[in-house]
Simulated scan of single mutants.
Amino acid sequence: MRAEPGRTILLTGLPSAGKTTVASAAATLLAAAGTRVEVLDGDVVRHEFWPELGLSPADRELNLARIGTLATLLARNGVVVLVAAIGPFTRARAALRDQHTGEGIDFSEVYVATPLRTCRERDVKGLYARQACGEISGLTGVDAVYEPPLAPDLSIDTSDEPVDVSANRLARFILESSATPGEGTIR
């Protein structure tokens, strides 16, 4: 017996925008509502499954494509997959959408549109400080390209609202856009 298809939601944005934080908080809400859910963090997946990939444009695209393959496997088995990955290139994000569409799996793009200044202030992993000191280069949105989505399915600016509000908006978006009888609700 095949499970009802899940779906994939890509949260894209600059480093320290809040992608993983919002995805994890939304996953908790979704699970409490009875949804099978998994968070795939781009950095964690890269480290655990293919640490040979660097941060070149080609490796970034390959990382997102491989995460997309994992997401489709989970989604076609009834899991809502929240992919928290920078995904800096429009072309790679479009390929991810096409991959899901080709499999008959719903796909949504969520732009975590937190401004660069806020991301620099947070600097969760110390990347902005390391880039400013010349220790690293190729930091997305600073000295490497980030192509913001032109028409995301949802946009969240974590500098304007607390994590719980952003997570609630994301969870509601997911449940309302895939509402099927018997699915849980966020209260």
Rank of each mutant, 00 (worst) to 15 (best):
S155I: 02
A3L: 11
G42N: 14
G182E: 03
Y128L: 07
F89V: 06
L175Y: 00
A23R: 07
T158N: 07
L127I: 10
E38Y: 04
R172S: 01
V39S: 10
S159A: 15
I105Q: 02
G184T: 06
P162V: 12
D160N: 07
T69G: 02
E52D: 12
I136F: 04
G54A: 04
A94V: 12
D157E: 02
V165N: 02
R122E: 04
P181W: 14
T12E: 03
K125V: 02
L62Y: 12
A92I: 09
I9T: 14
E38C: 08
S24I: 14
A25C: 12
G126N: 02
P5Y: 08
D123S: 09
R2L: 07
D106H: 09
L154D: 09
Y146M: 09
A132H: 08
D98M: 01
T101H: 07
L127G: 05
P152V: 09
T140K: 00
R97P: 01
I9W: 10
L154W: 07
A25G: 05
A85N: 15
N77I: 00
L70R: 02
C133K: 15
E61R: 14
T69M: 06
G78K: 02
P88V: 10
A33V: 11
A113Y: 03
F49L: 15
H47P: 00
R120A: 06
L11G: 04
L116Y: 11
T140L: 03
L53Y: 13
R36H: 14
G184A: 03
A33S: 11
A65D: 02
G138W: 13
P181E: 15
R120P: 05
V45C: 04
V112L: 06
Q131S: 08
A151Q: 08
R46Y: 13
S177T: 15
F49N: 10
W50S: 09
A31S: 13
I86D: 02
E4G: 03
D98E: 13
K19R: 12
F49M: 15
D59R: 09
L116K: 06
L139R: 06
G134K: 11
V142H: 04
P57T: 10
A25S: 13
H100I: 11
V110F: 04
T118A: 14
R97N: 02
M1Y: 04
I156E: 01
A94R: 15
V163I: 04
L116H: 06
P88I: 12
R117P: 00
I136S: 02
L74K: 03
L11P: 05
S24T: 15
Q131G: 01
G182S: 07
D43R: 04
G6E: 06
P57C: 00
P51N: 12
V145D: 09
G34Y: 12
